[in-house]
């Protein structure tokens, strides 16, 4: 098809939906190569739908998702799987499956009836385990792992797929804050070290601002703001996208924008907006 796509993964006027409901309407977005892109937005804004469309799980009603200039929906699905990895929201770990076995299944796109398992596959699995720091879990049964360990194993499976593009649908859901940070650190390192292009849907705006090179803010199936976190995360955009009053201040750790919600209650009776902390500690 078109060869004028500005980046390897490019959605061009794409419309996506379920049954008779259109969720994403005529949306165009270019995913910068070698960068971390985070899609944010309120519930039901179509961010997961967009990701699913880019991962060819949904067939577009209009427009196309182009991977290296070719429409993903018309390419052989196994060929797509060798270039584009996906970690969906709720993958299922089969009963009794061990970590190496699960991670090894990420090698499926590289295998066929004639070419079943090779040393390359062993090597790719070993590297995926090392990158996600799960080598020590290799023999364990996935059901018995903690939530954070399990999520790392799933990422290892997606890494074993050996793609330069990785799509993740809310990879931090069900994780506590420490594991969320650990997970995002892991993805950031992967991006830095291997140059993997990462696209993910996240709920936490502050973590998104910290880890994204590029933010895509969506509302009602459209992109309302796009750019660096500093460009996108402003008090106006947060109000527009999430319908939330907030103050945006520099994150004291990373100096990326930090959204502080205002809300209607401030927790303590008598406190007002802009109050200095009641107890100053030196």
């Amino acid at each position: 098809m078109s060869t004028t796509a500005p980046t390897r993964l490019y959605a061009e006027g794409v419309s996506l939906g379920y049954d008779d409901r259109t969720v994403v309407d005529d949306l165009t977005v270019a995913i910068p190569d070698g960068k971390v892109t985070v899609i944010v937005g309120g519930n039901g804004c179509g961010k997961s739908t967009l990701l699913r469309g880019m991962a060819r799980l949904l067939r577009p009603r209009g427009g196309a998702v182009l991977l290296d200039g070719e429409a993903v929906h018309t390419m052989p699905t196994k060929q797509v799987a060798r270039r584009l990895g996906l970690l969906p929201q709720n993958p299922i770990a089969p009963e009794g499956v061990t970590v190496v076995d699960l991670v090894g299944r990420g090698r499926h796109p590289h295998q066929s009836a004639l070419r079943r398992w090779s040393r390359d596959d062993d090597r790719a699995v070993a590297e995926a385990l090392a990158l996600t720091d799960t080598t020590d879990l290799a023999e364990r049964v996935v059901d018995e792992l903690s939530g954070g360990q399990r999520q790392r194993v799933w990422i290892a499976m997606a890494l074993a797929q050996g793609t330069d593009l990785l799509l993740l649908d809310e990879p931090t859901t069900y994780l506590d804050v420490a594991h969320q940070v650990e997970m995002l650190d892991l993805l950031a390192e992967l991006n830095l070290r291997a140059g993997t292009t990462i696209v993910m849907v996240l709920h936490d705006l502050n973590l998104s601002a910290r880890y994204a090179d590029r933010l895509v803010a969506m509302k009602e199936g459209r992109v309302v703001a796009e750019g660096t976190p500093a460009e996108v995360v402003t008090e106006d955009t947060v109000r527009d996208v999430f319908g939330l009053e907030s103050r945006v201040i520099p994150d004291p750790v990373s100096h990326t924008p930090l959204v502080v919600p205002v809300g209607r209650h401030l927790g303590r009776p008598g406190a007002t907006i802009g109050d200095p902390p009641t107890k100053e500690r030196p």
């Binding site: 061990t98 190496v100 076995d101 062993d122 090392a130 080598t135 290799a138 023999e139 390192e189 070290r193």
Partner: peptide, 30 residues
């Protein structure tokens, strides 16, 4: 055996070395 593995050049924490032997062994058991 896999000593030539590319070490991270950044200040990020050093990733473990890929252990192909262990993968092979772990795959064997099931």
């Amino acid at each position: 055996m896999t000593t030539t593995t590319d070490r991270p050049t950044t200040a990020l924490h050093a990733a473990a070395v890929p252990d192909v032997e262990r993968v092979r062994r772990a795959r064997r058991t099931p």
